[in-house]
Simulated scan of single mutants.
Amino acid sequence: MVFLAPALTTAFSALQLAVGRYLLYGAVACALLLPLWPALRAQVDRRAWLALAGLSLLGNLVYFVFLAMAVHWAGGAAAALIVGMVPVVVAAVDARRPTALPLRQLAPALCLCVLGSLLVAWAALGHGAGAAGDAGKDIGQRVLGLLCALAALAAWSGYSIANVVWMRRYPHLSGHAWSLLTGVATGAIAVLLLPLALWLGPLGQSQGQWLHFAGICALLAVGASVLGNACWNRATRSLPLSLGGQLIVFETLFALLYGFIWQQRGPTLLELLAIALLVGGVVLAAQAHARWEKIHG
């Protein structure tokens, strides 16, 4: 949904969308954390809060602001393509560890993911500017959008790696608790950014537009942030880093699915081929990890 939300809230800036989403995320996280806090208080030290603040800034606010600008300026397909390269970046970084699955054994899976992502972008952009919602964008806007997508890729890759590292330092905290603590930290940062978002953002929205905006922010806060982060934290704690990175390819697939629903059309044959390549890459990666774990324990 994070790829579709910017297209549904064009009357608001990327920073306003990020601040709105994370204010609500912080509020919901606080409410859910209250009954758990007496048991967690002694387990969350100052170092954990500083880590959570850094992770929140990088993986939530910075990432989502750049992603929203990329969708506005380059279109959802291009943004999904570039952010969909997270598996390549994460696997390449993780392969440097002596005990990790070597990059050469992941190469077939990574090649399929890269090829599938390229076909996704080609198919979506070739479907027509009107269908993709990119009409009226000049080359300068597209270049800025692609640069923003690259920045979002860097932010999310860095977050994916750092989040796993910090979660392993606090194994007594569940993935759900870590997600709620991240929400509290993100909400606090969003409060600080609220005056800036209102000052720099566009003016003159109607009451109906604000209600629509609030609904989208609430959907993102509960669905993508509270539930999505809890599932992601559980997955990355249970899986090797490079395999967890591979699974982010499903974000690209769902970005396409919701995009098709929004555009009221089905995928073309080329798009179906791209989806098959992306899923095939994940399956090959899972098989490679299964073989590696069987041999090396």
Rank of each mutant, 00 (worst) to 15 (best):
L61P: 05
L193Q: 12
A286T: 15
L198S: 11
I216M: 10
V65R: 10
M1C: 05
G75Q: 12
K137P: 01
L40P: 09
G140E: 00
R169L: 02
A154W: 03
A68P: 08
W122T: 08
T9Q: 00
V114L: 15
P267E: 02
A53S: 14
N163A: 06
W210K: 04
S160I: 02
A221C: 03
L67C: 11
L24F: 10
L125T: 08
R265F: 00
L220R: 07
L34R: 15
L173E: 08
L125P: 00
A121W: 14
W232T: 06
L40W: 12
Y25Q: 05
T236M: 00
V114D: 04
A5N: 01
L17I: 04
L33A: 09
Y22E: 06
V93L: 15
L219H: 04
L23F: 05
E251I: 07
A274T: 14
G133P: 02
G20E: 04
V283W: 14
L32M: 14
L227Q: 10
D45A: 11
G280E: 03
G76S: 14
L17S: 03
P108G: 11
G126W: 07
L180E: 07
P35C: 12
G215C: 07
L58R: 02
V143M: 07
G223N: 10
G158R: 01
P6S: 03
F66R: 05
A131L: 14
R46E: 03
V65F: 07
Q246S: 12
A77S: 14
A121M: 12
A121E: 08
L33R: 10
M1D: 00
L198Y: 12
R47G: 13
T268R: 10
R97C: 01
A5S: 11
G215E: 00
Q105E: 15
A100T: 08
L55H: 04
A48Y: 06
A255M: 06
G126P: 08
L270Q: 12
C148H: 02
H212W: 13
W199R: 14
L257F: 11
V90M: 03
A29Y: 15
L58V: 13
G130S: 07
L247C: 08
R291T: 11
L247W: 07
A129T: 03
D134R: 15
A27Y: 14
L200C: 11
G20C: 09
W292S: 05
R21F: 08
A152Y: 09
A124D: 04
K294Y: 10
A188R: 12
L112M: 15
L40H: 12
W37I: 13
L32Q: 11
L32E: 05
L180D: 06
L269D: 06
C217Q: 10
L153K: 09
N229C: 06
L118D: 01
A107F: 14
L17Y: 00
V249C: 11
G130Y: 01
G215R: 02
V83H: 05
